[in-house]
Every structure is written in structure tokens, then in C-alpha cells.
Amino acid sequence: MSLVKLIAQADERGLAASGLACLDRCVPLLGGDDEVLRPLWAGLVDDGEGWGEKVAKVRGELAPPASASDSAADSASASDSESGSGSGSGSGGGEEIVLLARRMLDAVPVERSGDGLREWADVCSISALRIHQLLDPLDAGGDDSVAACRAGRTEGASHLVAAELRRQVVVLELFAQHGAAGARQALGVATEGRRVLRAVVSRRARGARR
């Protein structure tokens, strides 16, 4: 089943998990530590009580100082310049990557219910795939390519983008099949993806300094 259909069929808990997992994978771009979203993960197993307060706390912890975001943007921008990827997938560079991550955080609904969650899940899905596309110098695709991947047409997708797509699908399937019991495995999927993203950003930064 395509990612678009999985999101369309997901319940509120699954939608929250989908958005949260995408954001968690991209937390390094916002200068956050690995534990910053744990209160929201813990909230997936309850009825959503206190969700808004937890969201506000996370936003506060991931707010500037801008130096952390600037550092991530500078690393990605420098490697874009070094690799000559100033066009295609490199357009916008590190600044666009960080803005996409910030967009996911800013869009978190203060209530874990309703259409707001589905909209957030879509925002996070698209943003996370685009981030991985921009981070991959071998991927010259754009928004159309991201839309095709979400619809199940993955021909030509780079390894980095295809892997992120698989992670998004797995998280939604876990909650569709197991409900709240899928939270621990979904967190593991997000953690694995965060390590991949951090390694890619670090490798690009090292390459830019050579």
C-alpha cells in the first residue's frame, strides 16, 4: 500500500506517530539531543492528555540559540558547494534543509486529535523525504519526485530517499497492526533513521573541509 493511502487510513495515534517519527529523525538538524521528543513518544500510549503541554515544552527546548541550526545549515551548505550541487537537489542547500525540519516542529498540532494530525503527518512525510533528497548528491529530483514516491512510484529514487520512505511506511504499518503496542518498535525505526541522517550530515561536513 502506498504511503499516501496509509496516511489516509491511519487513526489518530498512527498519524501522531508518523509525524513524530519523521520529526525525530530530523532532530539533529534542529540542534536537539536524542531524548528531546521522548515525552511525546510516551504520550502515544495514552489518550493524548497533556499533549499540548508536552509540545510546548519540546518547542522551547528546540528553540534558538540559532548557532545549533546555523551549524547544521552551514555544514550542509558547505558540502553542497564543495560537491557542486548548487542546482537540482542541492538548490536551497543547508538553509532549506533546516527550514524543512523547523517546519515539521512548527506544524505540530497542540491537540492530538482531528484533521490537524493528518495535516501534520503529511507535512512531516513530505518534509522528511525532501530533506533526505537534498542530502543525497546523487538525487536530482524535486517535489514531483517526492510526490511520486509517496504514491508508490519509486523508480529512480536514491538509496537515501527510498530508505526514508520505507521507514515512514513501517511506522504506519506498525500502528495499523498493533496500535499503541507498536510505539517501541516505531521509536526504534526513528532512532535508526536519526543515526543515518546524522552520519550523512557529518560525512558531508567532513568532505567539505577537505
Results as ranks from 00 to 15, higher is better:
residue 2 S to M: 11
residue 3 L to P: 00
residue 3 L to A: 05
residue 3 L to T: 05
residue 6 L to Q: 06
residue 9 Q to W: 07
residue 10 A to H: 01
residue 15 L to K: 00
residue 16 A to R: 10
residue 17 A to M: 09
residue 19 G to Y: 02
residue 20 L to E: 04
residue 20 L to M: 04
residue 23 L to Q: 06
residue 25 R to P: 04
residue 27 V to G: 01
residue 29 L to K: 04
residue 32 G to E: 01
residue 34 D to N: 09
residue 36 V to Y: 08
residue 40 L to I: 00
residue 41 W to G: 00
residue 42 A to E: 13
residue 45 V to C: 08
residue 46 D to N: 10
residue 49 E to T: 15
residue 49 E to N: 13
residue 49 E to L: 12
residue 53 E to T: 13
residue 57 K to R: 14
residue 57 K to F: 15
residue 57 K to H: 15
residue 58 V to S: 02
residue 59 R to A: 04
residue 60 G to Q: 06
residue 61 E to C: 10
residue 61 E to P: 05
residue 61 E to N: 11
residue 62 L to M: 03
residue 62 L to N: 01
residue 62 L to T: 02
residue 63 A to G: 10
residue 63 A to W: 12
residue 63 A to K: 14
residue 66 A to C: 11
residue 69 S to G: 11
residue 70 D to P: 05
residue 70 D to A: 13
residue 71 S to F: 15
residue 72 A to L: 11
residue 73 A to C: 14
residue 74 D to G: 11
residue 77 S to V: 07
residue 77 S to D: 08
residue 80 D to N: 14
residue 83 S to T: 12
residue 84 G to H: 04
residue 85 S to I: 09
residue 88 G to A: 13
residue 89 S to F: 07
residue 89 S to M: 06
residue 91 S to F: 13
residue 91 S to P: 09
residue 93 G to I: 12
residue 93 G to Q: 15
residue 94 G to K: 14
residue 95 E to P: 04
residue 95 E to Y: 09
residue 96 E to N: 15
residue 98 V to N: 03
residue 102 R to I: 13
residue 103 R to Q: 14
residue 104 M to R: 01
residue 106 D to Y: 05
residue 110 V to I: 15
residue 112 R to I: 03
residue 114 G to C: 05
residue 119 E to N: 11
residue 120 W to L: 02
residue 121 A to C: 03
residue 122 D to L: 13
residue 122 D to W: 15
residue 125 S to H: 08
residue 126 I to A: 11
residue 130 R to E: 07
residue 133 Q to C: 13
residue 136 D to G: 02
residue 138 L to R: 09
residue 140 A to H: 14
residue 140 A to F: 13
residue 141 G to F: 00
residue 143 D to F: 11
residue 143 D to C: 10
residue 145 S to H: 06
residue 146 V to T: 04
residue 146 V to Y: 03
residue 147 A to F: 08
residue 148 A to H: 08
residue 149 C to T: 01
residue 149 C to W: 01
residue 152 G to F: 00
residue 153 R to V: 11
residue 153 R to T: 13
residue 155 E to P: 11
residue 155 E to S: 14
residue 160 L to C: 02
residue 162 A to M: 11
residue 163 A to V: 07
residue 164 E to D: 12
residue 165 L to P: 04
residue 166 R to N: 05
residue 172 L to Q: 02
residue 172 L to A: 05
residue 173 E to T: 08
residue 174 L to Q: 03
residue 175 F to C: 09
residue 176 A to P: 05
residue 176 A to C: 05
residue 176 A to D: 02
residue 178 H to M: 06
residue 178 H to C: 06
residue 178 H to K: 07
residue 179 G to E: 05
residue 180 A to N: 05
residue 181 A to R: 15
residue 182 G to N: 01
residue 182 G to E: 00
residue 184 R to H: 14
residue 185 Q to Y: 02
residue 187 L to P: 02
residue 187 L to S: 08
residue 189 V to H: 02
residue 190 A to S: 02
residue 191 T to F: 05
residue 191 T to V: 11
residue 191 T to N: 11
residue 192 E to K: 06
residue 192 E to V: 09
residue 195 R to C: 01
residue 195 R to K: 08
residue 197 L to T: 02
residue 198 R to V: 08
residue 202 S to G: 12
residue 205 A to S: 10
residue 206 R to D: 15
residue 207 G to N: 12
residue 208 A to I: 07
residue 209 R to T: 12
residue 210 R to W: 12
